[in-house]
Amino acid sequence: MIVASSKPFQEIKQMLSGFKKVCVLGCGSCVTICHTGGEKQVIELAAQLRLSAKLEGREVEVIEDSTLRQCEWEFIEDIREVIQDCDAVLSIACGIGVQYMAERFPKIRVFPGLNTTFMGGPTEQGIFWERCAGCGNCILGTTGGLCPVSRCAKSLLNGPCGGSQNGKCEVSQETPCVWHQIYDQLDTQRLLATMETIVPPKDWTTGMENHPRKMILEHLVMKK
């Protein structure tokens, strides 16, 4: 899933200053699971905006809505009517949802209420970790199912660097060294010999460095 964190309220307030009618718009998918962009957060954020407006003596109307997925045209179409007389939308979807809204409703200002952080998931209650960097050429099959591209601070491909100690990454005692984990995993699977092979430089043409990337499913593309 896509993990996103809430922007500081001060920043949100600043972005929305001067707007008279604002819609706080949630998304029912990834960001609902990370407790930052779901219906509950819509209610909370809208209340916070109303309260701060009241305290500061500003006249602002704040409405609330949510859709199952802000990253699909069909779903955001349902919102057209709700937001039609709003002068700003605060989207608390990931950056994709914000852009879908901005693209579909060009006359309305759309602002991001979240910082989209990474692709990952919760590992325990309230804790989320990055798991994939979308490199476009997945190598998990050779690394025991753990991703060094996104989970090693240096995206190394040939095993742990000289800073790996006691299972921790050199950049932070809070971060496990994924290469140590890969080593243990391959050891369990009796596949340690894999780590002896030199992995050549990765072809990054499919990766983030070559954005924007595009995927085409030929069989679904409608012929013009």
Binding site: A153, K154, S155, L157, N158, G163, E170, V199
Partner: peptide
């Protein structure tokens, strides 16, 4: 060398490259 992570230096906000690793 692969190099020390940029986080340790005087420009921790820099983008680390790490296109290849030391073995490569």
């Amino acid at each position: 060398l692969t190099g020390d992570h940029q986080k340790f230096g005087d420009h921790p906000m820099a983008k680390g490259v790490f296109d290849i690793d030391s073995i490569q």
